[in-house]
């Protein structure tokens, strides 16, 4: 564990807490893409298959449970909670995310560290996470103005993988057996997808204006 990875995990945790706060405090999921939440649920379930087989540390296990639990809880809320689901706007959240699932799984079948059940699902989860934010970003562009909590949720979610890139650079220079090009390339793509969002977020913060993404 290094400071970059810890900062990344904490930023990721904060993004989840901000999302839970928004949904539970406002009893509304307006501006949130159910499809992105479903993709993240698949990402965590596919990545943490070793949850009950490989024990790495209490921290590792607890965080995995938090990530899986929170993503499934959000999906459940947006689909079944009688108050929250009313604020879900399926007419705006129209990204065909099943193509992302299929495409990433196909890619994982061909590009992986090792052809084993675990490794293929791990690579699949890494590729899927890189593109999981697309439905959310498309929804924000369509819905125009972005409420503060949703903006902060996306900001922290994008920043966490940026910290992970620093973590991989650090581990590259401090550890010998270091081959995680799958994570690195996907992490770079993932962070790059947020580039324009970060730009417009910074502009709105500098002008102290409401965050607006150009359609």
């Amino acid at each position: 564990m290094n400071i970059f990875r810890f900062a990344g995990d904490m930023t990721h945790l904060i993004s989840i807490l901000v999302l839970l706060l928004k949904v539970y405090a406002t009893k509304s999921c307006s501006g949130i893409s159910l499809k992105t939440q479903e993709l993240y649920g698949i990402v965590f379930l596919a990545r943490y298959l070793d949850l009950f087989t490989d024990f790495i540390s209490v921290y590792n296990t607890v965080m995995k449970l938090v990530f899986i639990g929170s993503s499934l809880a959000i999906v459940w809320c947006m689909r079944f909670h009688r108050v929250v689901k009313r604020s879900y706007d399926r007419d705006v959240d129209t990204f065909r995310h099943y193509f992302l699932v299929g495409g990433c799984f196909l890619l994982a079948l061909f590009v992986h560290e090792k052809f084993s059940f675990r490794e293929v699902f791990w690579a699949f989860s890494i590729y899927l996470e890189a593109v999981a934010i697309l439905p959310q970003l498309i929804l924000l562009q369509r819905s125009g103005n972005v409420d503060n909590l949703t903006g902060q949720y996306v900001l922290f979610l994008g920043a966490y993988r940026g910290f992970y890139i620093l973590n991989w650079i650090y581990r590259y220079f401090t550890e010998d057996q270091f081959s995680r090009w799958i994570s690195c390339v996907s992490g770079l793509v993932q962070t790059a997808l947020y580039a324009d969002f970060f730009y417009y977020y910074f502009i709105s913060w500098k002008n102290n204006a409401k965050l607006k993404l150009p359609a």
Binding site: R5, D9, H12, D50, D54, I56, N60, M63, K64, F67, E113, K114, S116, R118, E119, W122, Y164, N167, E175, Q177, F178, R180, S183
Partner: peptide
């Protein structure tokens, strides 16, 4: 040891 070293990450 872990099947793959990077699986210590979240």
């Amino acid at each position: 040891p872990l099947e793959h070293p990077m699986h210590d990450e979240l």
